[in-house]
Write a protein that binds this DNA or RNA. Structure first.
Lengths: 178, 178
DNA sequence: CTACAAACGTTAGAGCAACTAACGTTCGGT
DNA sequence: ACCGAACGTTAGTTGCTCTAACGTTTGTAG
């Protein structure tokens, strides 16, 4: 139950229950709140940035997955990207509309569609890579390079911890891999 | 500025479906992605935890705001908590139903309602404080105390940076930090 | 005093992301 | 040949953010 200790920076007002209640400063720096806030901000930048290139987050995730594992079934992609296969349908539709992927029935297993990235898709992916890199810089702007590394390292640990303790149950998503 | 360069390109290569792809690692550690992931996880824990006490995130935010600034109008609370006053209505309704706050018309300004925290509300708030503290420990479980401090410090900087660069426009929310 | 702009509480609703449930089809194992 | 499981897909629920408008009340300017 003990957690991080803090020094109160600015005395706001003494409105505390004297018997050792947490102070206001502490509440403002609730890690979960900070995470939500910064994540929301980052998400916004990413969404707006990708909109510039007529793309959305899942588009990028799927293209990345395709680059990593080559042509794959939709179920495979959904697992790899950590999304629901029901939601993947629309994403593939949109990517196919834009000519970034091709959806072809798998002759070897007629339940499956094989999703293949097209040359145009690769080009788009590279474009998005650049775009995203720029956005990361915006997100992390106030941090020095060493700090960025440190932050990423810690967040990675938290994410892995999360994955390990992930509860079972859901249909497709959050399949761990790599 | 520049940060990431990619090269794995020509020749779709064998799909190293294991893990340990160096290129893949970079993508997996996109800060924005890590933030979203960990924030989602934390959010889940918080939401579930608060549900235990028949509360939701905004309930806590409002109660904290009331502890900090004492009785206040709804507009004031919405600004302090960074939420829309339209959404605050339901929150106040719920808190009033539970007997945690009282909503009384302000005699001095008949547009306003004065929201006051009740003794029961204070008790609930203390309960939530404890609950939340426990949850923070769960969220940050894999990090050492010093690391937690460091993380909070960095996230705070990012959040402040965000606040400073937040563009104006919206109706109520995201007023002051402090 | 009157008129007008702004702030207040409230209602309604759009838009979006995460999530669940069910379906018809196809496959693998027994 | 049967049965359970995996596949792609459709539809729908939920919860959250956010916008727009309303009637009322207040402060202020003319």
């Amino acid at each position: 139950m003990s957690s991080t200790a803090h020094s109160s920076d600015t005395g706001d007002a003494g409105d505390d229950s004297g018997d050792g209640g947490p102070t206001a400063a502490r509440l403002r720096s609730l890690p979960s709140r900070l995470l939500s806030q910064t994540a929301a901000h980052a998400d916004r930048l990413v969404t707006e940035g990708l909109a510039t290139a007529d793309a959305r987050k899942w588009h990028y995730a799927v293209l990345v997955a395709l680059r990593e594992q080559g042509p794959a079934s939709q179920a495979g992609l959904s697992r790899h990207a950590g999304m629901y296969r029901s939601d993947l349908v629309a994403v593939i539709n949109e990517l196919a509309d834009r000519g970034h992927v091709e959806r072809t029935p798998d002759p070897a297993d007629r339940r499956r569609n094989v999703i293949t990235i097209t040359p145009r898709g690769r080009a788009q992916l590279r474009r998005l890579d650049g775009l995203l890199a720029t956005i990361q810089d915006q997100v992390l702007a106030p941090l020095a390079p060493a700090e960025r590394e440190e932050l990423v390292r810690m967040l990675t640990r938290l994410a892995e911890h999360h994955g390990a303790h992930g509860r079972p149950g859901a249909d497709d998503p959050m399949a761990r891999g790599s």
